[in-house]
């Protein structure tokens, strides 16, 4: 079985974000890391590697400097990397990114693609389904459990009321949520081995993607304004005076917030 795990380089979630004049995050202003959600998609791939001898390739769309992120992903024990680097990609929206990933996937053989369900910077959750749509393959998103038997992939698809059991024939695209596993730490051996794993860097031209399908100028979504997230408000304290009023107050609050 051949698996591809698309990963993203994202700003460190703990760091202060700087928005540049072009209304995108200034990625040089703070430290960038392997998107934390990818630790879960990588772990799932590593488990399939261990149990079914899967060959796992990591895919990254990003600037040349993101190569360290590919190596970081490889340090978990993956087999090789494919990096798409092209100045024309800068500022792409989710759809533009999905077009590049879809073309990159078309350039390789694979049975299963395992995405994280979202990235910690944009959090659109759009890319996995968009890629599946572009490629015309099954899309199994929000997986909190994943198994592969023969050429069938089965996932537990998480939603607000629990999960659905969904299955599809390979090749298929899956996105996983953080509840799916507990990622391991990379081993020292994995870190040392990562630097000698094969890594192909390709351009848009190599993949046959036209520059007018991607980039900020061709984005379907336009950002007009942004503002920092408002600071957290203090919570409501319900005092129990013994009269039972507190219970009613709590129940009203839960109904109001649609918890009940």
């Amino acid at each position: 079985m051949k698996i591809i795990v698309p990963v993203k380089r994202t700003p460190d979630t703990a760091a202060e974000k700087v928005i540049g004049d072009d209304r995108t995050v200034d990625r040089d202003a703070g430290e960038s890391v392997l998107c934390p959600v990818n630790e879960f998609s990588i772990e799932e791939a590593v488990r399939l590697k261990e149990s079914q001898d899967a060959e796992v390739t990591v895919l990254l769309v990003g600037p040349e400097s993101a190569q360290s992120t590919v190596r970081k992903a490889l340090s978990y024990g993956l087999d090789g990397g494919l990096q798409v680097t092209d100045d024309a990609i800068a500022g792409s929206d989710a759809l533009g990114t999905a077009r590049v990933i879809a073309k990159a996937l078309e350039s390789r053989e694979w049975d299963l693609v395992i995405f994280g369900n979202q990235s910690t910077d944009a959090r659109t959750c759009l890319v996995p389904a968009a890629v599946a749509e572009l490629l015309g393959v099954p899309s199994l998103t929000y997986a909190r459990h994943l198994e592969v038997e023969g050429d069938t992939v089965t996932v537990h698809r998480e939603h607000e009321e629990g999960w659905d059991v969904v299955e599809a024939q390979l090749p298929a695209i899956v996105s996983v949520v953080e509840a799916i596993n507990e990622p391991r730490y990379p081993s020292f051996k994995g870190i040392m081995a990562a630097k000698s794993k094969p890594l192909d860097v390709v351009s848009l031209a190599d993949l046959g993607v036209s520059a007018d399908e991607v980039g900020a100028g061709n984005a379907a979504a336009t950002m007009y304004e942004f503002e920092p997230r408002p600071p957290k408000e203090a919570g409501t304290v319900v005092e129990d005076d013994g009269s039972g009023a507190a219970a009613a107050q709590l129940a009203d609050w839960m109904v109001d917030k649609k918890f009940a």
Binding site: Y185, P186, S187, F188, K189, M192
Partner: peptide, 21 residues
Amino acid sequence: QMGEMGLFGIPFGSEFGGMDG
């Protein structure tokens, strides 16, 4: 868990199970 991460084999050769660190 530290063993699984390879910490106990760091400075030893891979010939005897070490990490060549």
